[in-house]
């Protein structure tokens, strides 16, 4: 018997169960006499190995016996296997589960994404471009792409595009996003000027705007 098993019951049991020790040896018998609990555990585990041996031998015998026979269903399996492989798309539960998990993860990411604030919440209702800007042939039409609250209005302000930035005039109470100057207003405009849009709420408070942008007439 391995000297290591003398004082280690677990090592002794393992050795007995794996062929490293003999139950009948005097050393093992002495240990069993000294430790009744060890003897009981050995008896239970040995019984279990006998059951496993019997089940294994039974299975091997059954398989060997089955090999020597034929049944009316022999070709049934073959047909099924060949049909199975010829299926164009086989249901694969693992693949479907993996796809579902991936989809759920993507939905979670989309749902929990940091919401991007709209431009109006930062800048007020102002956003978008002003037209005209830069060189133009005529001051015919002024347009802007700026939102306003339902009861709000636009104010256009015009300035001379010079170092002093002199204020020219303002056009108030506009609801549309374009304005066409009449002759009187045109006469107030300078060849180079800047203009801006401001949004007012129903109480006349400024909510933001766009511009100013420079615009000038062709020479």
């Amino acid at each position: 018997m391995d000297p290591r098993t003398d004082d280690d019951p677990e090592a002794l049991l393992q050795a007995l169960l794996t062929g490293g020790a003999d139950e009948q040896s005097p050393a093992v018998q002495r240990l069993f006499a000294a430790h009744a609990e060890l003897r009981e555990r050995w008896a239970r585990l040995r019984e279990l190995t006998r059951e496993l041996d019997a089940a294994g031998a039974d299975a091997r015998a059954a398989i060997a016996a089955a090999a020597a026979t034929t049944t009316p269903h022999d070709d049934q399996v073959r047909d099924l296997i060949l049909r199975w492989q010829q299926q164009p798309s086989r249901f694969r539960p693992r693949l479907v589960i993996a796809a579902a998990v991936l989809l759920a993860a993507l939905l979670c990411v989309w749902w929990l994404r940091p919401s991007r604030p709209d431009r109006d919440s930062i800048l007020g209702p102002a956003s978008g471009s002003l037209s005209p800007k830069g060189e133009v042939s005529d001051y015919a039409l002024f347009q802007w792409n700026v939102s306003r609250p339902p009861e709000g209005s636009y104010v256009l302000r015009f300035f001379a595009d010079d170092p002093a930035g002199r204020f020219l005039f303002a056009v108030t109470d506009l609801r549309d996003t374009q304005w066409r100057p009449d002759a009187a207003r045109r006469s107030q405009m300078t060849p180079r000027m800047a203009w801006q849009v401001e949004v007012l709420d129903v109480d006349g408070r400024a909510m933001g705007g766009a511009g100013p942008v420079a615009v000038w007439l062709q020479r």
């Binding site: 398989i63 016996a65 089955a66 090999a67 034929t70 049944t71 269903h73 399996v77």
Partner: peptide
């Protein structure tokens, strides 16, 4: 897998 019907029949 011809063993399948044979095992089943034997059992």
């Amino acid at each position: 897998l011809r063993c399948v019907p044979r095992i089943l029949a034997a059992q």
